[in-house]
Design a protein around this nucleic acid. Structure first.
Lengths: 364, 364
DNA sequence: GAATCGCTTCAAACCGCTTTGGATGGTTCA
DNA sequence: TGAACCATCCAAAGCGGTTTGAAGCGATTC
């Protein structure tokens, strides 16, 4: 079979497939004895169409199960009606994490309500730039959400340069120009948590932080350090750990601290998962959480990883990442609708909830 | 400002925005002194174009940073170049789970490599049907992946009816017609795990299963029951729990079993997370995992929830859900390319890896 | 009674690409 | 020498909507 034959065959198949294609605007217009123009306007709520006609059109559209072809709309309007989320993969697997799933779920709810598509691009680290450029120049999306910003994050300059609207989930310290972001007040959250522990009489407090090239991790450390300093305690570098927020990392950091000559009596953990690792380390050292060692975690309120139900397992700084997703998506859609507006910012406060993992400092 | 004025203004703004619009095929063709036809063919590798010309075109495309507009390609070819993943939300939050994130990451890698978009629809349970119908009739996707199948899953009949290619991640017991799926051999995995425990001398073995309207959960229970029965042990309903795969649920089920007159000496847990709940219950009962109570989990090999690194924390049946995502996506793309082909199936085997959480049954 | 106006409607252009169905000119072969 | 045949290239017709610019027409105004 020659190439030409094959093409011919492919086209024949495609023709067959199109036989059960959906009804389109032209057909519907013909059935109604109207022009496509009028039908289009009737369905899109334009004022220059008789109300009686509009109702007739809407009824017919429903009756014939007419759904305008998205691809045609997109070409005609020049809008993608889609938002992108780029997820770099491989070396840093920090991003494919449970937090991300819940954020996506929240954002997705907003998109669904507004008839936007959410498109996820999973790409190797080194293709990230090219991906953003492609998304823009090929016209696949109208805007993007930037995840997991780092210090001086280069993506912000890039996106501004190529003119793709964006909202950052988190902040990127070191960026000069204003940009739109939505963040949790991580500094304040960890500051309050630390103060809470200090109030309970703890003075050796360990920090099991996330990777500190991530912006939120830096802010958390700042809050922790500030609270200690304010009470006249010099932060001890031997009590500050920074690693991925995994169970194993939490375990190791805690284990290391517990073997110190002066082990901590309380811990701040960056996530529920690292908190579970910390708990394992505490318990396998024969100690009891909440009595010998107090633990406070940051709780992103993930739907499948609830910190208890009625009674929280861990005392925690809590902020729903899913709600953050919903809000960030709303900000982005607003930005897409009014690109000329000034960048918006939104800072969410975490609440401090008391669970079973904290108690007064043990008498020395 | 009248409506017309406003429209005029909007258009003016749009015109301004288009000034920095990307170069298009026609412009590129003009610059080259060729017709759009030839340029298109040159770039798409069609044979009816002189090689010298092709090279010239490719060079010019690169030089002028030409990227064909995806929206136009989609309209012209009638293909969406996109795959959908529908995630029902709200009542059953089972799906927004960590497994899902890793599966998506795997599938996304495949899509990226093949220049397909992945679109995620997060919709309320009751809109799921309408979402699939809309995806098809509005032409947003060329196919979908079906997640978390249940017994007699109605989505399969629906998708076949509307003629949207699909691959199921898992299987849906009770479906008569053949369909494409990719699954882990959950029955065999749990059977082997149970046999392993039996070999270690355990005879009271508890099951902390996922929700048993999910197909995989049923299969796991079958494997567990079969292994027991084969050794002449009658499965005890008091040792079989079924709930969401959360930490808290794992904790509760385990706690309940440990207070029985004859508590189990070993547990099978449906996930890493429920296994952690189980471990918490064991330890808070003053027992030691791997000595007093053995635990085997199913490990989906999630990137952010590693079951240890060198040495596994838990003995586990392991199967990478990310790899499953990659493979399922490949199956779907093949199906889209050859819709006339027979449905494909693929059954992956889990490996049994030995960790620190199992040991011989304690002497009674 | 003519000019004007608002309300409806429509034909045609357009979005940016693919694909069809030639056209052109040079080769090959009888 | 002329017909058949390639290898290349192009004009134009889609794809299925939206949007422009204009037209028809009864009602209002002067």
């Amino acid at each position: 079979m020659t190439r030409r034959d094959r093409l011919t065959k492919v086209r024949a198949i495609e023709t067959v497939l199109k036989r059960d294609a959906a009804m389109n605007l032209k057909e519907l217009a013909t059935k109604l004895g109207l022009s496509p123009t009028t039908v289009s306007r009737a369905l899109n709520g334009y004022p220059e169409v008789n109300e009686a006609t509009r109702e007739r059109v809407i009824a017919a559209a429903k009756r014939h199960n007419y759904h305008p072809n998205t691809r045609a709309i997109r070409l005609a309007t020049g809008r993608a009606m889609a938002v992108g989320h780029v997820i770099p993969i491989a070396t840093r697997h920090e991003i494919v994490n449970p937090v991300f799933a819940d954020f996506i779920a929240g954002a997705g709810e907003t998109y669904s309500r507004n008839d936007y598509d959410m498109i996820l691009s999973v790409v190797p680290d080194e293709d990230e730039d090219a991906t953003y450029r492609g998304l823009k120049s090929k016209g696949n999306v109208d805007g993007v959400i930037v995840h997991a910003p780092r210090m001086n994050d280069p993506r912000i300059a890039l996106l501004r340069e190529i003119g793709l609207p964006f909202v950052v989930h988190g902040r990127a310290t070191g960026t000069a120009e204003p940009y739109s972001w939505l963040d949790v007040n991580n500094r304040r959250a960890f500051q309050r948590a630390t103060e809470f522990l200090l109030d309970l009489g703890h003075s050796r407090i360990g920090l099991v932080n996330g990777l500190e090239f991530m912006d939120f991790a830096i802010r958390r450390r700042t809050g922790y350090v500030d609270a200690l300093t304010a009470r006249g305690i010099t932060p001890d570098p031997g009590l500050m750990f920074s690693d991925e927020m995994t169970e194993v990392a939490g375990f190791r950091a805690t284990q290391a601290m517990l073997t110190l000559p002066q082990p901590p009596t309380a811990l701040l953990c960056a996530s529920m998962i690292s908190g579970m690792g910390a708990r394992r380390a505490v318990e396998s050292a024969g100690l009891v959480v909440g009595r010998d060692v107090s633990i406070i975690i940051h709780d992103d309120d993930l739907s499948y990883m609830k910190n208890g139900e009625d009674v929280p397992i861990f005392t925690a700084t809590r902020s729903s990442v899913r709600e953050a997703g919903r809000l960030a998506a709303e900000m982005l859609l607003a930005l897409i609708a009014h690109p000329e507006d000034a960048p918006q910012q939104r800072l969410l406060e975490a609440e401090l909830i008391i669970g079973q993992s904290t108690g007064p400092a043990p008498k020395a």
